[in-house]
């Protein structure tokens, strides 16, 4: 069983380009460096194979996709937290210390 069987069931020719894009994106995502993207692609592929085999319903795959969209927001928040934590730990501390030193240097010069 393969996802191509599912895609072949879509007969609307206006969607041909989207089908090609989907196929290419799925292949790229499965080898992406970001673990979340890789996992999401593998889960989606697995779910689509089960859908093709009749072991999952359309509603099940829709639920999975909505959960993956929510998960994407958690991943985005995680990245924001990582960046802000680094800013707090390094940049803000550096700037604070700089202010202290500049004040001290200013006192000596004046």
């Amino acid at each position: 069983m393969s996802i191509n069987n599912l895609l072949n069931e879509i007969k609307d020719e206006s969607l041909n380009e989207l089908k090609l894009e989907f196929d290419s994106l799925l292949k790229t995502a499965k080898t992406d460096n970001v673990q979340y993207i890789q996992n999401a692609a593998h889960q989606l592929e697995e779910a689509l194979v089960y859908l093709e085999e009749g072991k999952l319903s359309i509603e099940d795959v829709e639920t999975l996709l909505r959960k993956q969209l929510i998960h994407a927001q958690i991943e985005a928040n995680k990245s924001a937290i990582e960046v802000q934590a680094r800013i707090q730990k390094t940049a803000l501390r550096l700037l604070s210390l700089s202010l202290v030193f500049i004040k001290e240097i200013g006192k000596r010069i004046l």
Binding site: Q43, E46, H71
Partner: peptide, 14 residues
Amino acid sequence: KILSNSTSQAYESA
């Protein structure tokens, strides 16, 4: 399995 795996991974990110 499909629900559990996607759930586990969302919590791992959190």
